[in-house]
Design a protein around this nucleic acid. Structure first.
Lengths: 210, 210
DNA sequence: TAGATTGTTAATCGATTAACAATC
DNA sequence: TAGATTGTTAATCGATTAACAATC
Protein backbone atom coordinates (compact mmCIF):
# COMPACT_ATOMS: atom_id res chain seq x y z
CA UNK A 1 0.00 0.00 0.00
CA UNK A 2 1.39 3.36 -0.99
CA UNK A 3 1.77 6.42 1.13
CA UNK A 4 -1.55 8.06 1.88
CA UNK A 5 -0.74 11.75 1.78
CA UNK A 6 0.08 12.31 -1.83
CA UNK A 7 -0.99 15.80 -2.82
CA UNK A 8 -3.59 16.45 -5.47
CA UNK A 9 -1.05 18.31 -7.54
CA UNK A 10 1.22 15.29 -7.76
CA UNK A 11 -1.57 12.88 -8.70
CA UNK A 12 -2.78 15.31 -11.36
CA UNK A 13 0.65 15.17 -12.99
CA UNK A 14 0.89 11.38 -13.13
CA UNK A 15 -1.24 10.88 -16.26
CA UNK A 16 0.98 13.29 -18.16
CA UNK A 17 4.11 11.44 -17.09
CA UNK A 18 2.41 8.25 -18.13
CA UNK A 19 1.66 9.64 -21.56
CA UNK A 20 5.22 10.84 -22.17
CA UNK A 21 6.72 7.60 -20.94
CA UNK A 22 4.38 5.65 -23.20
CA UNK A 23 5.52 7.71 -26.16
CA UNK A 24 9.17 7.21 -25.23
CA UNK A 25 8.66 3.51 -24.88
CA UNK A 26 6.90 3.35 -28.23
CA UNK A 27 9.86 5.03 -29.87
CA UNK A 28 12.18 2.45 -28.36
CA UNK A 29 13.86 4.62 -25.73
CA UNK A 30 15.14 2.47 -22.89
CA UNK A 31 16.21 4.94 -20.27
CA UNK A 32 15.83 8.63 -19.52
CA UNK A 33 17.24 11.02 -16.94
CA UNK A 34 15.08 13.45 -15.03
CA UNK A 35 16.92 16.21 -16.84
CA UNK A 36 16.09 14.93 -20.33
CA UNK A 37 12.50 14.27 -19.35
CA UNK A 38 12.30 17.75 -17.89
CA UNK A 39 13.34 19.29 -21.20
CA UNK A 40 10.79 17.21 -23.05
CA UNK A 41 7.93 17.98 -20.70
CA UNK A 42 8.90 21.55 -19.85
CA UNK A 43 8.89 21.03 -16.11
CA UNK A 44 11.83 21.06 -13.69
CA UNK A 45 13.93 17.95 -13.18
CA UNK A 46 13.59 18.58 -9.49
CA UNK A 47 9.82 18.30 -9.67
CA UNK A 48 10.06 15.06 -11.61
CA UNK A 49 12.34 13.47 -9.02
CA UNK A 50 10.23 14.76 -6.13
CA UNK A 51 7.05 13.47 -7.74
CA UNK A 52 8.37 9.97 -8.35
CA UNK A 53 9.89 9.77 -4.91
CA UNK A 54 6.47 10.17 -3.37
CA UNK A 55 5.92 6.58 -4.41
CA UNK A 56 9.38 5.16 -3.78
CA UNK A 57 12.61 5.16 -5.71
CA UNK A 58 12.14 4.19 -9.32
CA UNK A 59 15.49 5.40 -10.61
CA UNK A 60 19.11 4.53 -10.27
CA UNK A 61 21.94 6.97 -9.57
CA UNK A 62 24.17 7.55 -12.55
CA UNK A 63 21.68 5.86 -14.87
CA UNK A 64 18.34 7.60 -14.66
CA UNK A 65 15.01 5.88 -15.03
CA UNK A 66 14.19 2.78 -17.02
CA UNK A 67 11.35 3.87 -19.28
CA UNK A 68 9.47 0.59 -19.46
CA UNK A 69 9.73 0.01 -15.71
CA UNK A 70 8.68 3.52 -14.78
CA UNK A 71 5.81 3.38 -17.25
CA UNK A 72 4.51 0.22 -15.66
CA UNK A 73 4.98 1.55 -12.15
CA UNK A 74 2.93 4.63 -12.91
CA UNK A 75 0.24 2.45 -14.45
CA UNK A 76 0.17 0.46 -11.24
CA UNK A 77 0.01 3.58 -9.08
CA UNK A 78 -2.87 4.88 -11.17
CA UNK A 79 -4.64 1.55 -10.87
CA UNK A 80 -4.58 0.93 -14.61
CA UNK A 81 -3.66 -2.70 -14.12
CA UNK A 82 -7.12 -3.31 -12.72
CA UNK A 83 -10.20 -3.54 -14.86
CA UNK A 84 -13.17 -1.33 -14.09
CA UNK A 85 -16.69 -1.94 -15.25
CA UNK A 86 -18.68 1.19 -15.79
CA UNK A 87 -22.12 2.37 -16.75
CA UNK A 88 -23.09 5.52 -18.59
CA UNK A 89 -26.04 7.35 -17.13
CA UNK A 90 -27.49 9.70 -19.70
CA UNK A 91 -27.49 8.70 -23.36
CA UNK A 92 -27.59 12.20 -24.85
CA UNK A 93 -24.95 13.66 -27.13
CA UNK A 94 -22.11 13.34 -24.69
CA UNK A 95 -23.14 9.98 -23.24
CA UNK A 96 -23.35 8.50 -26.71
CA UNK A 97 -20.02 9.99 -27.73
CA UNK A 98 -18.33 8.47 -24.69
CA UNK A 99 -20.04 5.14 -25.27
CA UNK A 100 -18.74 5.07 -28.84
CA UNK A 101 -15.24 6.07 -27.88
CA UNK A 102 -13.07 2.98 -27.88
CA UNK A 103 -9.89 4.20 -26.23
CA UNK A 104 -11.03 3.94 -22.64
CA UNK A 105 -11.63 0.23 -23.06
CA UNK A 106 -8.02 -0.27 -24.04
CA UNK A 107 -7.10 1.08 -20.62
CA UNK A 108 -9.43 -1.31 -18.87
CA UNK A 109 -12.54 0.83 -18.47
CA UNK A 110 -15.31 -1.34 -19.86
CA UNK A 111 -18.73 0.05 -20.73
CA UNK A 112 -21.26 -2.48 -19.45
CA UNK A 113 -24.51 -0.55 -19.53
CA UNK A 114 -26.13 2.65 -20.76
CA UNK A 115 -29.15 4.24 -19.14
CA UNK A 116 -31.52 7.07 -19.91
CA UNK A 117 -34.89 8.45 -18.89
CA UNK A 118 -36.09 9.06 -22.41
CA UNK A 119 -38.27 6.15 -23.66
CA UNK A 120 -37.39 7.10 -27.24
CA UNK A 121 -33.84 5.95 -26.53
CA UNK A 122 -34.70 2.62 -24.90
CA UNK A 123 -33.23 -0.20 -26.90
CA UNK A 124 -31.02 2.05 -29.00
CA UNK A 125 -27.77 0.21 -29.61
CA UNK A 126 -24.34 1.71 -29.02
CA UNK A 127 -21.42 -0.64 -29.65
CA UNK A 128 -23.61 -3.63 -28.94
CA UNK A 129 -25.11 -2.22 -25.76
CA UNK A 130 -28.78 -1.32 -25.55
CA UNK A 131 -29.95 1.77 -23.73
CA UNK A 132 -32.07 0.86 -20.70
CA UNK A 133 -34.44 2.82 -18.46
CA UNK A 134 -32.86 4.41 -15.42
CA UNK A 135 -35.12 2.28 -13.19
CA UNK A 136 -32.94 -0.70 -14.05
CA UNK A 137 -29.76 0.80 -12.65
CA UNK A 138 -29.93 -0.61 -9.14
CA UNK A 139 -30.46 -4.17 -10.31
CA UNK A 140 -27.86 -3.81 -13.05
CA UNK A 141 -25.13 -2.55 -10.74
CA UNK A 142 -25.70 -5.44 -8.36
CA UNK A 143 -25.50 -8.02 -11.10
CA UNK A 144 -22.58 -6.66 -13.10
CA UNK A 145 -19.91 -5.62 -10.63
CA UNK A 146 -19.96 -1.97 -11.63
CA UNK A 147 -17.33 0.36 -10.13
CA UNK A 148 -17.81 3.59 -12.02
CA UNK A 149 -20.82 5.57 -13.18
CA UNK A 150 -20.37 8.18 -15.87
CA UNK A 151 -22.90 10.94 -15.25
CA UNK A 152 -23.87 12.58 -18.51
CA UNK A 153 -27.32 13.88 -17.66
CA UNK A 154 -28.47 17.50 -17.35
CA UNK A 155 -27.68 19.21 -14.07
CA UNK A 156 -31.25 19.11 -12.73
CA UNK A 157 -31.39 15.39 -12.17
CA UNK A 158 -27.71 14.90 -11.44
CA UNK A 159 -27.65 15.25 -7.66
CA UNK A 160 -30.58 12.88 -7.14
CA UNK A 161 -29.14 10.35 -9.55
CA UNK A 162 -25.73 10.55 -7.89
CA UNK A 163 -27.35 9.82 -4.54
CA UNK A 164 -29.10 6.81 -6.05
CA UNK A 165 -25.77 5.58 -7.39
CA UNK A 166 -24.22 5.94 -3.95
CA UNK A 167 -27.02 3.86 -2.46
CA UNK A 168 -26.20 1.24 -5.10
CA UNK A 169 -22.63 1.14 -3.72
CA UNK A 170 -20.93 2.60 -6.73
CA UNK A 171 -17.28 3.41 -6.01
CA UNK A 172 -16.74 6.36 -8.29
CA UNK A 173 -18.55 8.93 -10.36
CA UNK A 174 -17.16 10.60 -13.44
CA UNK A 175 -19.31 13.68 -13.38
CA UNK A 176 -20.01 15.63 -16.57
CA UNK A 177 -23.10 17.30 -15.11
CA UNK A 178 -22.56 20.92 -14.27
CA UNK A 179 -23.17 20.69 -10.53
CA UNK A 180 -21.16 19.87 -7.44
CA UNK A 181 -22.18 16.52 -6.06
CA UNK A 182 -21.10 16.60 -2.37
CA UNK A 183 -21.07 12.88 -1.80
CA UNK A 184 -19.64 10.89 1.11
CA UNK A 185 -15.85 10.84 1.27
CA UNK A 186 -15.45 7.23 0.26
CA UNK A 187 -16.99 7.93 -3.15
CA UNK A 188 -14.43 9.09 -5.71
CA UNK A 189 -15.63 11.94 -7.87
CA UNK A 190 -13.93 13.49 -10.88
CA UNK A 191 -15.66 16.47 -12.38
CA UNK A 192 -15.41 17.36 -16.04
CA UNK A 193 -17.02 20.76 -16.25
CA UNK A 194 -16.74 21.58 -19.93
CA UNK A 195 -18.35 24.97 -19.63
CA UNK A 196 -15.87 25.95 -16.89
CA UNK A 197 -13.08 25.00 -19.22
CA UNK A 198 -14.56 27.07 -22.02
CA UNK A 199 -14.86 30.06 -19.68
CA UNK A 200 -11.21 29.79 -18.76
CA UNK A 201 -10.41 29.82 -22.45
CA UNK A 202 -12.57 32.89 -22.84
CA UNK A 203 -10.70 34.57 -20.00
CA UNK A 204 -7.38 33.87 -21.68
CA UNK A 205 -8.58 35.36 -24.94
CA UNK A 206 -9.82 38.55 -23.35
CA UNK A 207 -7.04 39.06 -20.81
CA UNK A 208 -4.09 37.84 -22.80
CA UNK A 209 -2.78 34.37 -22.45
CA UNK A 210 -0.37 35.35 -19.69
CA UNK B 1 -7.98 46.77 -18.25
CA UNK B 2 -7.68 44.45 -15.31
CA UNK B 3 -4.56 43.53 -13.43
CA UNK B 4 -2.29 41.26 -15.40
CA UNK B 5 -0.87 38.94 -12.77
CA UNK B 6 -3.88 36.99 -11.70
CA UNK B 7 -2.86 33.49 -10.75
CA UNK B 8 -4.12 30.43 -12.58
CA UNK B 9 -5.69 29.17 -9.38
CA UNK B 10 -7.87 32.26 -9.05
CA UNK B 11 -9.02 32.19 -12.67
CA UNK B 12 -9.84 28.51 -12.38
CA UNK B 13 -12.20 29.31 -9.51
CA UNK B 14 -14.13 32.05 -11.30
CA UNK B 15 -16.43 29.78 -13.31
CA UNK B 16 -17.51 28.08 -10.13
CA UNK B 17 -18.31 31.40 -8.45
CA UNK B 18 -20.19 32.34 -11.58
CA UNK B 19 -22.26 29.19 -11.41
CA UNK B 20 -23.17 29.63 -7.75
CA UNK B 21 -24.01 33.30 -8.20
CA UNK B 22 -26.21 32.45 -11.18
CA UNK B 23 -28.08 29.90 -9.07
CA UNK B 24 -28.49 32.42 -6.24
CA UNK B 25 -29.75 35.04 -8.66
CA UNK B 26 -32.19 32.57 -10.19
CA UNK B 27 -33.60 31.85 -6.75
CA UNK B 28 -34.15 35.54 -6.16
CA UNK B 29 -31.37 36.15 -3.63
CA UNK B 30 -30.28 39.77 -3.75
CA UNK B 31 -27.20 39.88 -1.57
CA UNK B 32 -24.79 37.47 0.05
CA UNK B 33 -21.87 37.76 2.45
CA UNK B 34 -18.56 36.04 1.88
CA UNK B 35 -19.34 33.95 4.93
CA UNK B 36 -22.65 32.66 3.62
CA UNK B 37 -21.17 32.01 0.20
CA UNK B 38 -18.28 30.19 1.84
CA UNK B 39 -20.67 27.82 3.60
CA UNK B 40 -22.51 27.18 0.36
CA UNK B 41 -19.40 26.54 -1.70
CA UNK B 42 -17.30 24.89 1.00
CA UNK B 43 -14.36 27.24 0.66
CA UNK B 44 -13.08 29.83 3.13
CA UNK B 45 -14.64 33.28 3.25
CA UNK B 46 -11.13 34.64 3.22
CA UNK B 47 -10.40 33.03 -0.11
CA UNK B 48 -13.59 34.42 -1.59
CA UNK B 49 -12.71 37.96 -0.55
CA UNK B 50 -9.13 37.62 -1.72
CA UNK B 51 -10.23 36.23 -5.06
CA UNK B 52 -12.69 39.01 -5.78
CA UNK B 53 -10.27 41.67 -4.66
CA UNK B 54 -7.89 40.62 -7.38
CA UNK B 55 -10.26 42.39 -9.72
CA UNK B 56 -11.30 45.32 -7.55
CA UNK B 57 -13.80 45.79 -4.76
CA UNK B 58 -17.17 44.35 -5.61
CA UNK B 59 -18.61 44.33 -2.12
CA UNK B 60 -19.69 46.79 0.50
CA UNK B 61 -18.73 46.69 4.16
CA UNK B 62 -21.59 45.73 6.41
CA UNK B 63 -23.68 44.59 3.44
CA UNK B 64 -21.81 41.93 1.54
CA UNK B 65 -22.01 41.42 -2.18
CA UNK B 66 -24.89 42.22 -4.49
CA UNK B 67 -25.56 38.94 -6.26
CA UNK B 68 -26.70 40.34 -9.60
CA UNK B 69 -23.87 42.85 -9.75
CA UNK B 70 -21.18 40.35 -8.81
CA UNK B 71 -22.59 37.84 -11.28
CA UNK B 72 -22.33 40.36 -14.08
CA UNK B 73 -18.87 41.48 -13.05
CA UNK B 74 -17.55 37.92 -13.15
CA UNK B 75 -19.15 37.45 -16.56
CA UNK B 76 -17.31 40.54 -17.73
CA UNK B 77 -14.00 39.38 -16.24
CA UNK B 78 -14.40 36.03 -17.96
CA UNK B 79 -15.19 37.75 -21.24
CA UNK B 80 -18.66 36.26 -21.43
CA UNK B 81 -20.17 39.55 -22.58
CA UNK B 82 -18.35 39.13 -25.90
CA UNK B 83 -19.46 36.74 -28.60
CA UNK B 84 -16.98 34.21 -29.94
CA UNK B 85 -17.32 32.44 -33.25
CA UNK B 86 -15.83 29.00 -33.27
CA UNK B 87 -15.19 26.08 -35.55
CA UNK B 88 -15.06 22.42 -34.66
CA UNK B 89 -12.19 20.53 -36.23
CA UNK B 90 -12.91 16.82 -36.16
CA UNK B 91 -16.48 15.60 -36.63
CA UNK B 92 -16.11 12.27 -34.84
CA UNK B 93 -18.07 11.24 -31.77
CA UNK B 94 -16.91 14.05 -29.58
CA UNK B 95 -16.96 16.75 -32.26
CA UNK B 96 -20.52 15.87 -33.14
CA UNK B 97 -21.58 15.80 -29.52
CA UNK B 98 -20.15 19.25 -28.92
CA UNK B 99 -21.73 20.55 -32.14
CA UNK B 100 -25.10 19.30 -31.00
CA UNK B 101 -24.77 20.69 -27.51
CA UNK B 102 -26.77 23.89 -27.31
CA UNK B 103 -25.66 25.35 -24.01
CA UNK B 104 -22.42 26.90 -25.18
CA UNK B 105 -24.31 29.07 -27.66
CA UNK B 106 -26.32 30.57 -24.82
CA UNK B 107 -23.05 31.83 -23.38
CA UNK B 108 -22.02 33.41 -26.67
CA UNK B 109 -19.90 30.65 -28.18
CA UNK B 110 -21.33 30.22 -31.68
CA UNK B 111 -20.53 27.19 -33.81
CA UNK B 112 -19.92 28.52 -37.31
CA UNK B 113 -18.27 25.62 -39.07
CA UNK B 114 -17.40 21.94 -38.70
CA UNK B 115 -14.50 20.26 -40.47
CA UNK B 116 -13.21 16.76 -40.97
CA UNK B 117 -10.84 14.77 -43.12
CA UNK B 118 -13.24 11.93 -43.74
CA UNK B 119 -15.06 12.34 -47.11
CA UNK B 120 -17.89 10.17 -45.77
CA UNK B 121 -18.75 12.99 -43.40
CA UNK B 122 -18.65 15.83 -45.93
CA UNK B 123 -22.04 17.49 -46.13
CA UNK B 124 -23.36 15.78 -43.02
CA UNK B 125 -25.59 18.25 -41.23
CA UNK B 126 -25.34 19.05 -37.53
CA UNK B 127 -27.71 21.72 -36.29
CA UNK B 128 -27.87 23.28 -39.74
CA UNK B 129 -24.14 23.25 -40.34
CA UNK B 130 -22.58 21.04 -42.97
CA UNK B 131 -19.30 19.26 -42.35
CA UNK B 132 -16.60 20.53 -44.70
CA UNK B 133 -13.18 19.24 -45.71
CA UNK B 134 -10.29 20.43 -43.59
CA UNK B 135 -8.76 22.10 -46.68
CA UNK B 136 -11.43 24.78 -46.41
CA UNK B 137 -10.40 25.89 -42.92
CA UNK B 138 -8.02 28.66 -43.89
CA UNK B 139 -10.50 30.37 -46.20
CA UNK B 140 -13.34 29.86 -43.74
CA UNK B 141 -11.53 31.41 -40.80
CA UNK B 142 -10.68 34.47 -42.86
CA UNK B 143 -14.23 34.98 -44.02
CA UNK B 144 -16.09 34.25 -40.78
CA UNK B 145 -14.23 36.03 -38.01
CA UNK B 146 -13.38 32.87 -36.09
CA UNK B 147 -11.75 33.20 -32.65
CA UNK B 148 -11.75 29.68 -31.32
CA UNK B 149 -11.03 26.27 -32.81
CA UNK B 150 -12.24 23.19 -31.00
CA UNK B 151 -9.79 20.38 -31.69
CA UNK B 152 -11.55 17.03 -31.59
CA UNK B 153 -9.31 14.98 -33.84
CA UNK B 154 -7.07 12.04 -32.92
CA UNK B 155 -3.71 12.91 -31.40
CA UNK B 156 -1.68 12.05 -34.50
CA UNK B 157 -2.87 14.95 -36.60
CA UNK B 158 -3.47 17.37 -33.76
CA UNK B 159 -0.10 19.14 -33.59
CA UNK B 160 0.04 19.77 -37.34
CA UNK B 161 -3.55 20.96 -37.40
CA UNK B 162 -2.96 23.25 -34.45
CA UNK B 163 -0.03 24.81 -36.28
CA UNK B 164 -2.21 25.36 -39.32
CA UNK B 165 -4.80 27.06 -37.13
CA UNK B 166 -2.13 29.32 -35.67
CA UNK B 167 -1.07 30.33 -39.18
CA UNK B 168 -4.72 31.18 -39.81
CA UNK B 169 -4.55 33.60 -36.87
CA UNK B 170 -6.89 31.74 -34.59
CA UNK B 171 -6.87 33.22 -31.09
CA UNK B 172 -7.61 30.15 -29.02
CA UNK B 173 -7.71 26.38 -29.16
CA UNK B 174 -9.93 24.20 -27.02
CA UNK B 175 -7.89 21.05 -27.22
CA UNK B 176 -9.53 17.65 -26.73
CA UNK B 177 -6.70 15.81 -28.50
CA UNK B 178 -4.47 13.92 -26.14
CA UNK B 179 -1.25 15.79 -26.86
CA UNK B 180 0.47 18.93 -25.63
CA UNK B 181 0.37 21.58 -28.31
CA UNK B 182 3.25 23.94 -27.42
CA UNK B 183 2.03 26.93 -29.37
CA UNK B 184 3.23 30.55 -29.26
CA UNK B 185 2.34 32.42 -26.09
CA UNK B 186 -0.30 34.63 -27.63
CA UNK B 187 -2.45 31.62 -28.50
CA UNK B 188 -4.77 30.63 -25.67
CA UNK B 189 -5.00 26.89 -25.13
CA UNK B 190 -7.29 24.97 -22.83
CA UNK B 191 -6.74 21.25 -22.67
CA UNK B 192 -9.51 18.79 -21.92
CA UNK B 193 -7.71 15.52 -21.49
CA UNK B 194 -10.52 13.11 -20.74
CA UNK B 195 -8.29 10.11 -20.32
CA UNK B 196 -6.18 11.99 -17.76
CA UNK B 197 -9.34 12.72 -15.84
CA UNK B 198 -10.36 9.08 -15.95
CA UNK B 199 -6.93 8.05 -14.68
CA UNK B 200 -7.24 10.40 -11.73
CA UNK B 201 -10.58 8.78 -10.97
CA UNK B 202 -8.93 5.38 -11.17
CA UNK B 203 -6.24 6.55 -8.75
CA UNK B 204 -8.89 7.68 -6.28
CA UNK B 205 -10.65 4.34 -6.44
CA UNK B 206 -7.50 2.33 -5.85
CA UNK B 207 -5.84 4.57 -3.26
CA UNK B 208 -8.89 5.69 -1.35
CA UNK B 209 -10.50 8.98 -2.07
CA UNK B 210 -8.48 10.73 0.58
C1' DT C 1 37.74 4.64 -10.24
C1' DA C 2 35.44 8.82 -12.27
C1' DG C 3 31.23 10.58 -14.03
C1' DA C 4 26.52 10.77 -13.94
C1' DT C 5 22.39 11.18 -11.84
C1' DT C 6 19.35 9.96 -8.26
C1' DG C 7 17.13 10.63 -3.61
C1' DT C 8 16.57 13.90 -0.20
C1' DT C 9 17.27 17.93 2.64
C1' DA C 10 17.13 22.85 2.74
C1' DA C 11 15.67 27.29 0.68
C1' DT C 12 12.42 29.75 -1.82
C1' DC C 13 8.33 30.95 -3.60
C1' DG C 14 3.39 31.36 -3.93
C1' DA C 15 -1.14 30.44 -2.33
C1' DT C 16 -4.26 30.06 1.47
C1' DT C 17 -5.92 31.41 5.85
C1' DA C 18 -6.29 34.42 9.84
C1' DA C 19 -6.81 38.76 11.81
C1' DC C 20 -8.31 43.30 12.10
C1' DA C 21 -8.73 48.15 10.88
C1' DA C 22 -11.66 50.63 7.66
C1' DT C 23 -16.20 51.74 6.49
C1' DC C 24 -20.83 51.11 4.99
C1' DT D 1 -24.62 55.24 16.25
C1' DA D 2 -23.78 50.13 16.56
C1' DG D 3 -23.35 46.02 14.00
C1' DA D 4 -21.91 43.76 10.11
C1' DT D 5 -18.83 42.72 6.78
C1' DT D 6 -15.56 44.09 3.54
C1' DG D 7 -10.71 45.05 1.90
C1' DT D 8 -6.18 44.28 3.08
C1' DT D 9 -2.10 43.21 5.75
C1' DA D 10 0.29 39.69 8.22
C1' DA D 11 0.95 34.77 9.39
C1' DT D 12 0.83 30.18 7.97
C1' DC D 13 0.94 26.53 5.18
C1' DG D 14 2.17 23.81 1.21
C1' DA D 15 4.31 23.25 -3.16
C1' DT D 16 8.20 24.07 -6.07
C1' DT D 17 12.97 24.67 -6.86
C1' DA D 18 17.84 24.45 -5.65
C1' DA D 19 21.64 22.15 -3.83
C1' DC D 20 24.33 18.40 -2.71
C1' DA D 21 25.63 14.09 -0.46
C1' DA D 22 24.81 9.27 -1.59
C1' DT D 23 25.58 5.81 -4.82
C1' DC D 24 25.24 3.33 -9.04
Amino acid sequence: MDDKNISQAVVARLPRYYRYLGDLRDSGIERISSQDLSKLMKVTASQIRQDFNNFGGFGQQGYGYNVEYLYNEIARILGLNEKHNLIIVGAGNLGQALANYMNFERRGFIVKGIFDNDPDLYGKELRGIHVQPVENIEQFIKENDIDIAVLTIPKNGAVKTAELLVRCNIKAIWNFAHVDLNLPDHIAVENVHLSDSLMKLSYSIVNGNR
